[in-house]
Structures are given as C-alpha cells and as structure tokens.
Amino acid sequence: MPNAWGGIPAHLDLVNTYGKPTTQRWITEGGVKFQVPTPQAMTSKQQRAQARGFVVSTLTALSQGVDKPFPFSLPPLNEGSTFFGLLTRDWAPNAAFTAETAMTAALGHASYVGALPGLPAGVTAFAFDDGDDQVIALWAENPTDVTLDLGAGKVTRTTIVGASDQLTSADGRYRLKAQPDPTYLRVHGTQVVTGKSGLRPVTSTRSSVTLTPAQRVVVAQRYGDAARADSKAQGYRLSGDEANTVDVQLYNLNDVPDRRPARRGGQRMADGDRSAAGHDPRDVVGDRAREGECRPRHGDGRPRRAPGGRGLRWSEDVALGGRDHRLLRRGYRRPRAFRRREARGAGRLHQHH
C-alpha cells in the first residue's frame, strides 16, 4: 500500500491513544504547491501534476483511515512565489478542481474496503463501497498493462476529469492500462473486494446543537489586491511589534436580516447605505458579547478572570450591524486585545498591545 503522506499513521496513532472513539480524523491542509510568481498562471504541466497529486493523496488518506481530507486551498493563494489554489487568479477552475469534483462524484460514499491483490509492482487499486456498488480507483507510477478480474459483465469507467464510458466483458476480466492519472471503475451490484478493511467506519459529523443567531454570523478576512500578491506577508501574518489592521467581510447566515441600526465612525448609518459588495452592513445578527459566548474561559468552561479577581468587562457598543465583540481592558492588561470597527465596504479588526 502506498504511503503518499508518511505522517498520517503517526497522527492517527496519537488520535487513537488520546482521542475518543468518535473523534474525527481530518486532514485540513492537503495538496501540492508550485512556484508560480504573481501574476503568472500555472502551466498545463503544473495543473496536471496538481490534479494528480490532490486525487492520489486523497485516495491514500482515505485508505489509511482519514475520515475527511480537505484540499488546500480553494481560492488562488500565493505565499511569496509559492502558489496554492484549486481556482485560477481569474477564479476559473484549475484541473485539480475538476479532478476533485470527478473523484467525489465517482466514489460516492467512499467507504474504504481494501486493495486489490496480485497487481504488478507500482500499480495501486483501492476498492470503495458505495451502497450495493463497489468503485475501484486504479492508477500506476508508470503506464502499465493490467488485467482485473471484476466478476461483472459491465462496468462504468470514469477518468480523472469525469469523462465516463461503459466497458463490457464476457468473462468479467478487463484488460486495461493503468496510468499515473487515476481511473475509477464502478462495478454495479458486485463486491470485488470483500471483508472489512479494519478501519473505523465513517460516522456522521452532524451535531444536535442548535446554533444561536450570533453563531450564524461569519467574519472572514477580505484579501485586497496587495494581499493577493503575497498572502502570508501581507494577508494573515501579524506583526508582534505594532498594531495590525485586517479587512474583514461579514456573512449573515440567518434566515432574516437584522435591522438594528449600526454605527459607522460613531455615526448612525442612513437607510440604504450599503457596502461596496452590495450588502447592507446592518444585516448582521448577534451579540456574542452579551450572550457571553466570546468570553475567555478555562478548559473546564469556567469564565477566565483577570488578575486580582477582577472580571473581564464586555462592551455592548453597536457596531458591524450587531454588537461589538471586543474586550474592554479596564484594570486588565492582556498582551493583546481586539476591537472591531466598521469601515466603508468592510469591517476592520484592530489589534492593540
């Protein structure tokens, strides 16, 4: 079995030792990086290598017991001259985006069963259950002729970019050429690999917790033109010696907007005043400060108190269409405290020492 990410077994051992049986195994930043300085675009060779790398690493991670592998990253992202992203600088799909989409559709539930035995060296074939069907993901380090006994007269073949066709065989054996780009073979109603993989069954991550209106408001960083050129240096790397200003966007995921008046620079906003993105900044619901959800807490849930027994005070200043989440540093000198203030077109998060 290939081990595209050698660190996975060691990380899973830690989770198995210190986590719970229900602890999910996620990979949050998997992918392939290339040297593509701004404003250059990825070459066709780089795009193909990125697509192949994303798919092979995802298949391998699933075979090793990872519940959910996440690619990094969806939007175009430069760290210096190093480029990540499933989308181009013009927000069009790269080949890797298409490959991820095709893989997701081809595998379905993607419950890993095991590897097909008896294959030539350098060839990999993983079997995944999807209901009554089984999907074989096949690839090779170099183009290699293989014969697969799939025990079915008809299978559906899907390429790495999602093109599908039907293959037939009188004896259930298929003579194929395994390529570096993975191919998916859906065997309808037949289990080619039987038994159990020995991995934990994939469980749902859905929660019965009901989110409050405040928890349905998302604050996301807004990357301007300058930040796109070098996102790490100009986007999310914070200075430890001076104040940092970060542009943010607000997303209200509640069913109805909040029409409480908001302030901009200490003044009440006028009706119809909208941001550059076309959103009314008042359409934000929530008061985490008032609800106590943003208050620093210890590991056991007890509110964290300031030195000398003085509790932290929370502001209820109207800002960002809801209420501010900032800490008031009265009698409590934390190294860093944050306050948010609205600016035209976007909020601004100010960090002070």
Rank of each mutant, 00 (worst) to 15 (best):
Q46G: 02
A277M: 08
K33P: 05
A289E: 03
D13T: 12
A163F: 06
Q166Y: 03
D67N: 11
G131R: 05
G80F: 04
L176V: 04
A106T: 03
A306G: 11
Y18D: 04
P180A: 03
T98Y: 02
T203S: 14
E316L: 15
A10D: 13
R290L: 15
T22D: 13
R186S: 03
M269H: 06
L138P: 04
G224A: 02
R175L: 05
R339K: 13
K154I: 08
S275Q: 10
D165E: 10
T158H: 04
G309L: 06
L176R: 01
D13P: 06
H11E: 13
D129V: 03
L86W: 00
Q24E: 13
L253I: 07
S315E: 10
H11C: 14
V219K: 06
V192Q: 01
R216T: 11
G309S: 05
D280V: 04
A106Q: 00
V56I: 13
G65V: 00
N254L: 09
R313A: 13
Q64Y: 08
R228T: 11
G292M: 11
P296A: 09
G30E: 07
W26H: 14
R333C: 11
S169H: 05
G131N: 04
H11N: 14
D255C: 09
R52P: 00
Q179P: 01
V218W: 15
G162Y: 03
V146Y: 02
P93A: 05
V284I: 15
S63Y: 02
K177V: 10
A343M: 06
T144F: 02
T22L: 05
S207M: 12
G322E: 03
T159Q: 01
F70M: 14
Q351M: 11
L148C: 05
G31M: 05
E100F: 11
A306P: 00
L167A: 03
R304I: 08
K154L: 12
G31K: 00
T104P: 02
G301N: 09
P76D: 12
T82A: 07
G235T: 02
Q221D: 10
G31Y: 00
L119I: 01
S275N: 13
A51E: 04
R228Q: 10
D129E: 06
D90K: 09
G31P: 03
L59Y: 01
A289N: 14
V256W: 09
G172T: 05
P281C: 08
A105V: 10
